[in-house]
Amino acid sequence: MNVENLNKAFDNRIRLGIMSILVVNREMNFNSLKEMLQVTDGNLASHLKGLEDTGYLSVNKGFIGRKTNTIYEITKNGEKAFREHLDALEFLIKNTR
């Protein structure tokens, strides 16, 4: 295992943050993610879209009253990819010591 195993899809602080939150909470809505990651709407939305396109997230659009409530859920693939990314990071750190 080496640097190659680091997943390019997670090559960004916000994407990594999204995956970290979803891997423990399974699903979360847009606003909660925004508050936890302290990012702007547009920034978060574009990264979520990216992860969705890679197939790591599934999106569920719903309503609370009249407000849209978009819920993001991690997919099996997403969880697997994230765990592998963490393993690669761990490996990297252990072996450069």
Binding site: S20, I21, L86, I93
Partner: peptide
């Protein structure tokens, strides 16, 4: 190296706090 450690730390914090 230092960057990877920081990344892991950040992941850990988000997992815990969320």
């Amino acid at each position: 190296m230092k960057q990877e450690l920081e990344t892991l730390q950040e992941i850990r914090n988000l997992m815990e706090n969320s």
